[in-house]
Simulated scan of single mutants.
Amino acid sequence: MGGSRRRGPSTGHLFRTLLSASAIARHRRRALVITGVGDVFSAGADLNWMSAITVGDYDDQVADSERLDDLFHAIHSFPAPVLARINGHALAGALGLVACADIAVAVRGAKFGFTEAKLGLALAVISPCVQPKIGLSNALRYFLSGEVFDADRALDICLIHEVCERERLDATMERVVNDLLAGGPRAQRKIKELIRKVENTRTLVEARQLTVSTIAQLRMSDEGQSGMKAFLRQQPMPSTKHIEE
């Protein structure tokens, strides 16, 4: 990702790159890791992009916002685990990517902030990703105030999952990735799908039908059979780096 408003790739180029990368990795990869360049995850939009959007009409603004929403939807709906390796400050729209991640690890010293209100804007496109993560009360406070907070506070409000020292970031990410690789890739994709669907079920009857069907399918799958047999033999589950077609 781009390091700041003044360095790194343009916002438009960044969006296209992330969309392309997620499309390529979508079907067979075990996980998607999003990180920044140097010591900054992303400090928000670059100046060229911000200058361009100030001169567009309403239709231009809608089209640009839809492209932004396409990016967050692609990350949020990515079937395999998504990890955010937050190597430094993450501000404004970058927090949409953090919120879309299934697992987010940040270095101590990283700063976070939903700063749109200080520009006379609203945290609109990324709010469907962020608000379920941090809850209504925290959304009201931080969206309205635009205040900047540290990694420990980001952990407290459930925006991220773990904080580590900068020199431990790679080791921490390696541990997280290894934990994921120890699981069944098809099961992990099914788990993500199940979590999203359970969240949207309206009754316990709907949830029952969904959960019973899911576990029955997984028990009968080749991966489930292999995993259960390995457990009974007191052996680790066979791992794979790719999803076979």
Rank of each mutant, 00 (worst) to 15 (best):
R7Q: 09
P9K: 08
H13M: 03
H13F: 01
L14Y: 00
F15Y: 07
T17E: 12
L18D: 04
L18P: 07
A23Y: 03
H27W: 07
H27K: 15
R28K: 14
R30H: 07
R30C: 07
D39Q: 09
V40I: 03
V40W: 00
F41V: 02
S42I: 10
G44W: 05
L47R: 06
N48S: 13
W49D: 12
W49K: 00
A52M: 10
T54R: 14
V55D: 04
V55G: 06
D57E: 13
Q61H: 15
S65M: 12
F72N: 01
I75V: 14
H76D: 15
S77Q: 10
F78K: 03
F78Y: 12
A80G: 11
A80F: 11
V82A: 00
I86P: 05
N87D: 11
G88A: 13
A90K: 00
A90N: 07
A94G: 15
L95W: 03
L95T: 10
V98K: 00
C100R: 05
D102K: 01
A104E: 03
A106N: 02
A106W: 06
A106P: 07
R108Y: 05
R108H: 12
G109R: 06
A110F: 08
F112Y: 14
F114S: 02
T115I: 15
A117T: 15
L119A: 15
V125W: 00
S127P: 03
C129W: 10
V130Q: 07
Q131Y: 08
I134W: 06
G135D: 11
S137C: 02
A139H: 11
L140R: 09
R141H: 03
F143A: 15
L144S: 15
E147K: 09
A151W: 05
R153K: 13
L155S: 06
I157D: 03
L159K: 01
I160G: 04
I160K: 01
R166T: 15
L169D: 10
D170H: 12
A171L: 01
T172H: 07
R175Y: 04
L181Y: 05
G183H: 12
G183P: 02
G184Y: 02
A187E: 06
E193D: 09
R196V: 05
R196E: 04
T201P: 03
T201M: 06
T203K: 05
L204T: 14
V205E: 15
E206V: 01
E206Q: 12
R208E: 14
L210P: 02
V212R: 10
S213R: 09
I215N: 07
S221K: 01
E223H: 09
S226P: 06
P236G: 08
S239L: 06
T240L: 08
K241E: 09
H242N: 10
H242I: 14
